[in-house]
Structures are given as C-alpha cells and as structure tokens.
C-alpha cells in the first residue's frame, strides 16, 4: 500500500514561502511525476513527503495515517537521490543490505533479498566492489537496489537520471518504468525533463513557484492545458502564442498552437512569414518562422524531407480543432 495525501501542506524557509498551502492525492500504485521550472519547489515537496523537511503547515497522510510528525525512518518510504548518496565506505552488498540491517532482518534473509535485487538490476558481479569502483549507471542501480529491497510503501526519486549521459538515461528510464510495472508500488518522480515526464507518468503534477498549476495524465495536460503556464511548459518544442487581432478572431485573448498542429506550405495559408533557424532531426524538421506579425516567432513541425532555406517565405495553416484559446487571465476558454 502506498496512498499519500497532502492536505494544506505548506513550507516556509524563514520568511520565504516556498510552498503555499497545497492539496494533493497520490493513489496507491500510481507513477506520479512532479515537473516545473528550476527552483519551483519540486525537491522541497518531495523532501516534505520523505520527512527530510518539516512541514510549516498542513498534514501528510500515508495510507490514511497521519505521518506529519514522523521522522523519515518511520514513514516506510524509500528515496533515490540525484547524487546517488551511496555509502562510500561500504561494499555494494552492504549498501543494498543497509536498510534491511536497520530493519533488523536476519542475515540469511538479508542475503536472499540482496541477491534477488542484484539479479534484477544486473549487479551480481559487482556486489563486492565499493561504490567508487562503479560507473554512474551502476551506482544509480545500486541506489535503486537499496530502495527496492525493503519493499517500501512508495519510492521517491529526485532527478535520478540527470547525472547520466543521454543514452544511459533512456535505458534507465525504461528500467524504472519496467520496475514500476512489475512492483506496482507508488512512485513519485521529480524531473525537469519533458520526455521523462510524458513517457513515465500516470499522472503529472505541474508546479510553478510552489503552486500546483495542473494535475492530470500526460495526454490531458497535452490536450487541455488549464492555463498559459501549463500550455507553455508541456510539449517540446514549445507551443507558440499569438495575441492581438488574429487571436481575437480565433476567440481568445491569447491563442496557442503547437508546432505539430501547423501545416507549412510555400504558397497557401492564412499566416505568412520568413524562415529563420531550421532544426533537422531526421524524422522531423522544426522551422522557426519570423515576421508573421502575430508573434516574435512561431515554431512549426514539418516532415523530415521538407527543404526550406533561411529567408524563404512560407505560409502556415493552423488546424482549427487543435487551437488552444485563453482569456486575459491566461485561463483556458
């Protein structure tokens, strides 16, 4: 079990209110991702749930029981840190066994569980090494091993993959997703990586300056962002925003269009501009179109084969049913 409820939870550091009171329910077995810009309080929120920071206000319930006053050791949660935070003076085996030793399990049971975790995580050959003798990816696996052996109520991850190179990151992302499929344990995952959030999450929580902007499934956030912040934050490359008369005509103070919902053509279309930078990804090409008179730049996705040069004049056609309209307060219409 691992159902976590935050009720009016707030955090202040001195006079600075980092997290204004917020409510959030995380269901048992869910994979929840916290995203938001740097400094928005993702780590702080995670640490509040972990018990590593005291709440300034509000209550935290784990499986219905009030855990607000419990220390991190008593909450039955496991955490994987960005820096891995392995014990440098212990072997991999002792690192993974440490939580079991603290829980007072007998040696045979400890060994059984460590071997089991090592097998799942491909660490069997490294059990007698020190963390200093491992690669970054192996260290990350040890940190995950240390978290899974104690069968926690929930896993907390704070940007666990950000110290890994791109290829390894994709691999570990899949491993963590598979782990979740297998264990079906609640996972809370902090990241600022779009792709991680979209691909791993059952539920994404978008944070901005400590406030929750929107909670929903990846596709909900993509299709129906509640406000301008979420609209601009979810999706990569970013949605382009248009204001002024053209926006009014479409029925909003601001209108947003994603690059993939614009058609580009050399001669036809209501919006006209000149091509700036083009980014060729092979499968797709993203063009940055300037001088439209609608927005400083509009990003548009085209097929990988489309060849346009810097300075070419192009016409753009938005897909009418994929336009996002917002009122003057930035809220979705």
């Amino acid at each position: 079990m691992g159902q976590i409820t935050l009720s009016k939870v707030a955090k202040r550091f001195g006079d600075a209110e980092v997290i204004p009171p917020l409510d959030l329910i995380i269901d048992d077995g869910e994979f929840v991702v916290f995203v938001g810009p740097s400094g928005c309080g993702k780590s702080t929120l995670l640490r509040l749930i972990a018990g590593l920071e005291d709440t300034s206000d509000g209550r935290i319930l784990i499986d219905g029981k009030d855990a607000t006053a419990l220390g991190p050791a008593q909450r039955g949660l496991a955490m994987v840190f960005q820096s891995y935070a392995l014990y440098p003076h212990m072997s991999v085996r002792s690192n993974i066994a440490f939580p079991l030793k603290m829980a007072g399990l007998d040696k045979a049971e400890q060994d059984r569980r460590v071997e089991g975790a090592a097998k799942v995580l491909n660490l069997t050959n490294y059990l007698d090494r020190r963390p200093g003798q491992l690669s970054g990816g192996q260290r990350q696996r040890v940190a995950i091993g240390r978290a899974i052996v104690r069968e926690p109520a929930a896993f907390l991850f704070d940007e666990p993959l950000s110290n890994l190179d791109a290829a390894l990151r994709v691999g570990m992302r899949l491993e963590i997703s598979e782990l979740h499929e297998r264990l079906k344990t609640t996972m809370i995952y902090v990241t600022h990586d779009q792709v991680e959030a979209m691909t791993m999450a059952d539920k994404i929580v978008v944070l901005n300056a400590g406030r929750i902007e929107q909670v929903g499934s990846p596709l909900e956030l993509y299709r129906t962002p509640r406000n301008l912040f979420v609209a601009g934050f979810i999706g990569s490359p970013k949605m382009s925003f248009i204001t002024g008369a053209e926006a009014q005509k479409a029925g909003g103070a601001t209108v947003g269009v994603r690059p993939e919902h614009l058609r580009v053509s050399p001669s036809e279309g209501p919006w006209r501009g000149t091509v700036g930078v083009s980014e060729h990804l092979g499968s797709d090409t993203f063009f940055h179109v300037h001088d439209t008179g609608l927005a400083p730049v509009i990003t548009v996705r085209a097929d990988g084969e489309v060849a346009l040069s810097h300075g070419d004049t192009v016409h753009l056609t938005p897909q009418a049913d994929k336009i996002h309209r917002f009122d003057q307060n930035g809220l979705r219409i």
């Binding site: 018990g51 590593l52 991190p72 050791a73 496991a78 955490m79 392995l86 014990y87 440490f98 603290m102």
Partner: peptide, 23 residues
C-alpha cells in the same frame, strides 16, 4: 561529508545513533 548520505541513512531507517555509528 555530503549531507545527502546522512539523509539516505535516515531514509533507510537508521536511528540517529545508527546514523552516527554506521555512516
């Protein structure tokens, strides 16, 4: 000594005394 390592010990269920003794 990185504070995160001591926090990891706390998350792993170590009491203050065990945190001092083992980590």
């Amino acid at each position: 000594i990185p504070g995160e390592i001591l926090e990891a010990a706390r998350m792993d269920g170590a009491s203050l005394w065990n945190e001092i003794l083992y980590v």
